[in-house]
């Protein structure tokens, strides 16, 4: 387990030293969301209606920008090969890197989303559910994105490929995430959607680190 926490700590340290990379994701999130009032018009009711969807789509696209650096640097400088032959099970290594990725990308997105919610005139009663759904959703996005990053590691033009692999797989997150916020705004309980998101998260925790491990072993060969 000490290796697990050491790896989480190392990845967080690296991310903090390259702080501009993390900031770039958040800045993209804010700018992309800020484009919508220009595109659809600044009418407050329309924006309030669209806010959950805009938040989820832009957060998803912003997260896509962060996956290429998840394994790429370790792959380039040979660290990945050492991690693969280390005694620690490879799925634990993958899970440690995914947790570090969520703490340095998912969490900042989570913090930024209520601010953008205010800018988009989101109904006040939607905020609590938005944060709960985002917390579950960004974790799923980190897990699935890591799988895509591991599969496309070392390929030609991996950035575009990554979007093609990951975006179709996270459509359920978008459906239930935006659905939860919509339900809360409409005055309905969002328990059902949050439970589905929680179930998806548990399923991904089982499948994705294992898939990552297989893909990383392939890449390190």
């Amino acid at each position: 387990m000490s290796g697990f926490f050491a790896l989480v700590g190392r990845d967080i340290r690296i991310a903090l030293r390259q702080f501009s990379d993390t900031m770039m994701v958040i800045v993209f999130f804010v700018i992309a969301a800020a484009l919508f009032p220009f595109g659809v018009g600044p009418e407050p009711n329309l924006l309030a209606r669209m806010a959950p969807g805009i938040l989820w789509v832009t957060a998803l696209l912003a997260a896509m920008l962060s996956f290429d650096r998840l394994f790429q640097n370790d792959y380039d400088d040979g660290t990945l090969e050492l991690l693969v032959i280390a005694p620690q099970p490879l799925w634990m290594t993958a899970l440690a890197k995914i947790i570090a990725h969520w703490l340095t990308t998912g969490l900042p997105l989570l913090v930024a989303s209520p601010v953008i919610g205010i800018m988009l005139n989101l109904e006040p009663r939607g905020f609590g559910v938005l944060i709960a759904a985002m917390a579950l959703g960004t974790a799923i996005i980190s897990l699935v994105g890591a799988l895509g990053a591991a599969l496309s590691l070392g390929s030609r033009r991996s950035g575009v490929l990554l979007s093609l692999l990951v975006l179709p797989l996270v459509i359920p997150v978008l459906i239930f995430g935006a659905g939860a916020v919509d339900a809360a705004i409409g005055g309905f309980p969002a328990t059902q959607q949050l439970l589905v998101l929680g179930g998806l998260l548990l399923g991904c925790i089982v499948v994705c680190p294992w898939g990552c491990a297989v893909a990383l072993r392939l890449a390190a060969d």
């Binding site: 496309s152 490929l161 093609l164 179709p168």
Partner: peptide, 18 residues
């Protein structure tokens, strides 16, 4: 995605496994 990933590697064996 499947087709793109299978053809994205210089090493064909890597692409088919991924």
């Amino acid at each position: 995605g499947f087709i793109a990933l299978a053809n994205a590697f210089d090493d064909a064996a890597r692409g088919e496994k991924a």
